[in-house]
Write a protein that binds this DNA or RNA. Structure first.
Length: 196
DNA sequence: ATGCAGATCGTCT
DNA sequence: GACGATCTGCATC
Protein backbone atom coordinates (compact mmCIF):
# COMPACT_ATOMS: atom_id res chain seq x y z
CA UNK A 1 0.00 0.00 0.00
CA UNK A 2 1.28 3.44 -0.96
CA UNK A 3 2.29 6.24 1.38
CA UNK A 4 -0.07 9.19 1.86
CA UNK A 5 1.43 11.48 -0.75
CA UNK A 6 1.52 8.83 -3.49
CA UNK A 7 -2.05 7.81 -2.72
CA UNK A 8 -3.25 11.43 -2.67
CA UNK A 9 -1.92 11.90 -6.20
CA UNK A 10 -3.09 8.55 -7.56
CA UNK A 11 -6.66 9.03 -6.32
CA UNK A 12 -7.08 12.10 -8.56
CA UNK A 13 -9.16 11.15 -11.58
CA UNK A 14 -10.59 8.04 -9.90
CA UNK A 15 -14.33 7.64 -9.50
CA UNK A 16 -15.45 7.53 -5.87
CA UNK A 17 -18.56 5.33 -5.78
CA UNK A 18 -21.16 4.92 -3.04
CA UNK A 19 -23.39 1.99 -3.88
CA UNK A 20 -26.76 2.63 -2.26
CA UNK A 21 -30.04 0.69 -2.44
CA UNK A 22 -31.34 3.63 -4.46
CA UNK A 23 -28.51 3.36 -6.99
CA UNK A 24 -24.95 4.54 -7.40
CA UNK A 25 -23.87 7.98 -6.29
CA UNK A 26 -20.43 8.87 -7.56
CA UNK A 27 -17.99 11.60 -8.44
CA UNK A 28 -14.50 11.95 -9.86
CA UNK A 29 -11.87 12.85 -7.29
CA UNK A 30 -10.51 16.30 -8.15
CA UNK A 31 -8.86 17.43 -4.88
CA UNK A 32 -7.02 15.61 -2.07
CA UNK A 33 -4.68 16.24 0.84
CA UNK A 34 -2.04 13.92 2.30
CA UNK A 35 -1.54 13.59 6.06
CA UNK A 36 1.75 11.94 6.85
CA UNK A 37 1.64 10.34 10.26
CA UNK A 38 2.99 11.22 13.70
CA UNK A 39 5.74 13.56 12.44
CA UNK A 40 3.24 15.64 10.45
CA UNK A 41 1.99 18.27 12.90
CA UNK A 42 -1.11 18.86 10.78
CA UNK A 43 -2.20 15.23 11.12
CA UNK A 44 -4.60 13.95 13.75
CA UNK A 45 -2.13 11.12 14.27
CA UNK A 46 0.53 13.61 15.40
CA UNK A 47 -1.19 13.54 18.77
CA UNK A 48 -1.25 10.38 20.83
CA UNK A 49 -3.00 7.35 19.38
CA UNK A 50 -6.68 7.55 20.27
CA UNK A 51 -10.02 5.95 19.69
CA UNK A 52 -10.72 8.31 16.83
CA UNK A 53 -7.50 7.71 14.92
CA UNK A 54 -7.29 3.96 15.59
CA UNK A 55 -8.19 2.91 12.05
CA UNK A 56 -5.21 4.86 10.71
CA UNK A 57 -2.89 2.43 12.48
CA UNK A 58 -4.29 -0.51 10.56
CA UNK A 59 -3.48 -1.32 6.92
CA UNK A 60 -4.37 1.03 4.07
CA UNK A 61 -7.61 0.85 2.12
CA UNK A 62 -10.06 1.56 4.95
CA UNK A 63 -12.15 4.62 5.74
CA UNK A 64 -11.11 7.18 8.35
CA UNK A 65 -14.17 9.33 8.96
CA UNK A 66 -14.35 12.09 11.54
CA UNK A 67 -16.70 14.84 12.57
CA UNK A 68 -15.53 18.43 12.37
CA UNK A 69 -16.92 21.52 14.10
CA UNK A 70 -19.71 19.38 15.49
CA UNK A 71 -21.49 19.67 12.15
CA UNK A 72 -19.75 18.14 9.16
CA UNK A 73 -17.96 14.91 8.39
CA UNK A 74 -14.68 14.53 6.56
CA UNK A 75 -13.90 11.40 4.53
CA UNK A 76 -10.36 10.00 4.41
CA UNK A 77 -8.69 6.96 2.88
CA UNK A 78 -6.15 5.29 5.14
CA UNK A 79 -2.84 4.84 3.32
CA UNK A 80 0.32 2.85 3.86
CA UNK A 81 0.91 -0.23 6.01
CA UNK A 82 0.07 -1.07 9.62
CA UNK A 83 1.38 1.27 12.27
CA UNK A 84 2.11 3.97 9.70
CA UNK A 85 -0.84 6.32 10.16
CA UNK A 86 -0.97 8.11 6.84
CA UNK A 87 -4.28 9.15 5.30
CA UNK A 88 -5.74 11.11 2.40
CA UNK A 89 -8.55 13.61 2.87
CA UNK A 90 -10.92 13.75 -0.11
CA UNK A 91 -11.63 17.47 -0.60
CA UNK A 92 -13.48 17.67 -3.91
CA UNK A 93 -15.47 15.57 -6.38
CA UNK A 94 -16.87 16.28 -9.81
CA UNK A 95 -20.42 14.84 -9.63
CA UNK A 96 -20.96 11.89 -12.00
CA UNK A 97 -23.78 9.48 -11.10
CA UNK A 98 -26.74 10.15 -8.80
CA UNK A 99 -26.61 13.90 -9.30
CA UNK A 100 -30.32 14.20 -8.48
CA UNK A 101 -29.72 12.54 -5.11
CA UNK A 102 -26.76 14.82 -4.43
CA UNK A 103 -28.86 17.89 -5.18
CA UNK A 104 -31.54 16.64 -2.84
CA UNK A 105 -29.03 15.90 -0.07
CA UNK A 106 -27.35 19.28 -0.45
CA UNK A 107 -30.44 21.37 -0.97
CA UNK A 108 -29.11 23.08 -4.08
CA UNK A 109 -29.11 22.46 -7.83
CA UNK A 110 -25.90 24.33 -8.47
CA UNK A 111 -23.51 21.67 -9.78
CA UNK A 112 -20.32 23.44 -8.73
CA UNK A 113 -21.57 23.71 -5.14
CA UNK A 114 -22.42 20.04 -4.65
CA UNK A 115 -19.06 18.45 -3.86
CA UNK A 116 -16.50 21.28 -3.83
CA UNK A 117 -15.28 20.77 -0.27
CA UNK A 118 -14.70 17.93 2.21
CA UNK A 119 -17.85 18.60 4.26
CA UNK A 120 -20.01 19.19 1.21
CA UNK A 121 -19.15 15.95 -0.53
CA UNK A 122 -20.02 13.87 2.53
CA UNK A 123 -23.44 15.54 2.65
CA UNK A 124 -23.90 15.07 -1.12
CA UNK A 125 -23.13 11.35 -1.00
CA UNK A 126 -24.99 10.85 2.28
CA UNK A 127 -21.93 9.57 4.17
CA UNK A 128 -21.71 9.72 7.93
CA UNK A 129 -19.93 8.20 10.93
CA UNK A 130 -21.26 4.77 9.99
CA UNK A 131 -18.63 4.37 7.29
CA UNK A 132 -15.77 4.68 9.79
CA UNK A 133 -13.55 1.64 9.23
CA UNK A 134 -15.33 0.44 6.09
CA UNK A 135 -13.18 -1.66 3.75
CA UNK A 136 -12.83 0.11 0.40
CA UNK A 137 -12.40 -3.26 -1.28
CA UNK A 138 -16.02 -4.07 -0.41
CA UNK A 139 -19.03 -3.45 -2.63
CA UNK A 140 -20.60 -0.52 -0.78
CA UNK A 141 -17.94 2.14 -1.05
CA UNK A 142 -15.01 1.98 -3.45
CA UNK A 143 -12.88 3.72 -6.07
CA UNK A 144 -12.89 2.86 -9.79
CA UNK A 145 -10.58 3.71 -12.66
CA UNK A 146 -12.07 6.64 -14.54
CA UNK A 147 -9.95 9.36 -16.16
CA UNK A 148 -6.28 10.20 -16.36
CA UNK A 149 -5.86 13.83 -15.22
CA UNK A 150 -4.17 16.08 -17.78
CA UNK A 151 -2.33 18.16 -15.20
CA UNK A 152 -1.98 17.99 -11.42
CA UNK A 153 -1.26 20.97 -9.20
CA UNK A 154 0.00 21.10 -5.62
CA UNK A 155 -0.35 23.70 -2.89
CA UNK A 156 -0.18 24.02 0.89
CA UNK A 157 -3.01 22.29 2.75
CA UNK A 158 -6.10 24.21 3.82
CA UNK A 159 -6.69 25.39 7.39
CA UNK A 160 -3.67 23.82 9.03
CA UNK A 161 -2.08 27.04 10.25
CA UNK A 162 -1.35 25.38 13.59
CA UNK A 163 1.05 22.88 12.02
CA UNK A 164 4.20 25.01 12.28
CA UNK A 165 6.86 23.86 9.78
CA UNK A 166 4.34 21.48 8.20
CA UNK A 167 1.86 24.24 7.35
CA UNK A 168 3.60 25.31 4.15
CA UNK A 169 4.38 21.87 2.72
CA UNK A 170 2.66 21.29 -0.66
CA UNK A 171 0.64 18.26 0.30
CA UNK A 172 -2.65 19.35 -1.25
CA UNK A 173 -3.19 18.05 -4.79
CA UNK A 174 -5.83 18.94 -7.33
CA UNK A 175 -6.70 18.63 -11.01
CA UNK A 176 -5.72 21.81 -12.81
CA UNK A 177 -8.59 24.05 -13.94
CA UNK A 178 -11.31 21.73 -12.68
CA UNK A 179 -14.31 23.79 -11.52
CA UNK A 180 -15.13 21.41 -8.66
CA UNK A 181 -11.92 22.11 -6.75
CA UNK A 182 -12.78 23.96 -3.53
CA UNK A 183 -12.26 27.71 -3.68
CA UNK A 184 -9.62 29.05 -1.36
CA UNK A 185 -7.11 31.86 -1.12
CA UNK A 186 -4.04 29.71 -1.42
CA UNK A 187 -5.25 28.30 -4.72
CA UNK A 188 -2.94 30.93 -6.17
CA UNK A 189 0.06 29.33 -4.50
CA UNK A 190 -0.41 26.20 -6.58
CA UNK A 191 2.36 24.83 -8.72
CA UNK A 192 2.28 22.31 -11.54
CA UNK A 193 3.85 19.00 -10.61
CA UNK A 194 5.00 15.96 -12.55
CA UNK A 195 2.48 13.24 -13.19
CA UNK A 196 3.40 10.02 -11.46
C1' DA B 1 -15.91 40.30 -4.71
C1' DT B 2 -14.11 39.80 -0.03
C1' DG B 3 -14.55 39.15 4.91
C1' DC B 4 -16.23 37.69 9.22
C1' DA B 5 -19.30 35.69 12.81
C1' DG B 6 -22.00 31.83 14.11
C1' DA B 7 -23.47 27.12 14.20
C1' DT B 8 -22.60 22.93 17.25
C1' DC B 9 -20.66 18.64 19.55
C1' DG B 10 -17.35 14.64 19.71
C1' DT B 11 -12.85 14.12 21.15
C1' DC B 12 -8.98 14.86 23.91
C1' DT B 13 -6.66 17.41 28.11
C1' DG C 1 -13.42 23.00 29.33
C1' DA C 2 -11.45 24.14 24.75
C1' DC C 3 -11.18 23.54 20.09
C1' DG C 4 -11.39 22.23 15.40
C1' DA C 5 -8.29 19.02 8.19
C1' DT C 6 -15.89 23.51 7.46
C1' DC C 7 -19.73 25.94 5.45
C1' DT C 8 -23.22 29.42 5.09
C1' DG C 9 -25.32 33.79 5.29
C1' DC C 10 -24.97 38.47 5.96
C1' DA C 11 -22.29 42.74 5.93
C1' DT C 12 -19.57 45.89 3.56
C1' DC C 13 -16.79 47.61 -0.40
Amino acid sequence: MQDGISLAKSLLGKLMVYNTPMGRISGMVVETEAYMGPEDKAAHSSRSKSQRTLVQYGPGGFVYMYRIYGIYHCFNVVANIENTPHCVLIRGLEPAEGVEAMMSNRGTTELKALCSGPGKLCVALGLNKQCYGVDLCGDSLFFEEYLQPQAIMSSPRINVDYAEEYTALPWRFYIKDNPHVSKHKNNRLGATIQLA
